[in-house]
């Protein structure tokens, strides 16, 4: 339908979504987008992104307390630590854009309402994915699903962004999420004893 109407690079994904072997996001098209409704600048986009990352870290830490196996606890701890790195990257990005250098702690104070990535609560996620918290492979799959939600949210917010600076920041954050997913994927691939 698109070919021949001025669209230059059209591809059919053979096999459709069932053939897709990467992350899949869940939710209606505007899920979480309310978080970006009032985004006017790159600075605000970073602030909201930081809130999402803070929510994800809280999520990992909360799950860490719920699981029994030490290996799973350690895994959650590692994932939570990765979120700190992500937060630091966002704060650095903030410094690049505004010229104002802040510590992560100082930046965190600006967040009024920490929100989960993709706009869902921890309980909603657990219900949605019915995760066995003692299965490391399931835990990692859940983490990837959450990161995919965040990637999806950032990409769609960037797509709807009408301000160039904001779009650039959102795409940079999305790129970070994509690398996060790649890291989790690499981790899964190199664990021999996952249950």
């Amino acid at each position: 339908m698109l070919a021949g109407k001025g669209f230059e690079k059209i591809y059919n994904l053979s096999g459709g979504i069932k053939a897709w072997d990467k992350e899949v996001a869940v939710g209606s098209e505007d899920t979480g987008l309310h978080l970006f409704d009032r985004v006017l600048s790159g600075e605000e986009a970073i602030t909201i992104g930081f809130g999402l990352e803070m929510g994800l870290r809280d999520f990992y830490l909360a799950m860490q307390k719920r699981v029994v196996r030490e290996a799973t606890k350690a895994l959650f701890s590692k994932l939570a630590d990765i979120e700190i790195l992500h937060q630091e990257q966002l704060v650095q990005l903030y410094g690049e854009i505004t010229g104002t250098q802040l510590s992560v702690a100082d930046f965190a104070e600006k967040i009024a309402e920490p929100a989960m990535e993709g706009g869902l609560t921890t309980e909603e996620y657990l219900q949605l994915y019915k995760t066995d918290l003692d299965s490391e492979s399931e835990v990692l799959s859940l983490a990837m699903a959450i990161e995919a939600q965040a990637l999806d949210l950032y990409l769609r917010a960037a797509e709807k962004s009408t301000e160039a600076g904001s779009e650039r920041v959102l795409r940079r954050i999305a790129a970070e999420e994509r690398s996060h997913i790649a890291r989790l994927s690499h981790y899964i691939d190199h664990q021999q004893d996952l249950i």
């Binding site: 979504i17 990467k22 899949v24 869940v26 990637l151 990409l155 797509e159 795409r171």
Partner: peptide, 23 residues
């Protein structure tokens, strides 16, 4: 980020699972 994934299925199928960032 120039590549657009276009989901031409129905909204309920999209809600059940779609590629991240898909329109």
């Amino acid at each position: 980020g120039d590549v657009l994934f276009l989901d031409v299925r129905q909204p309920q199928e999209y809600a059940a699972g779609h590629l991240p960032g898909a329109k």
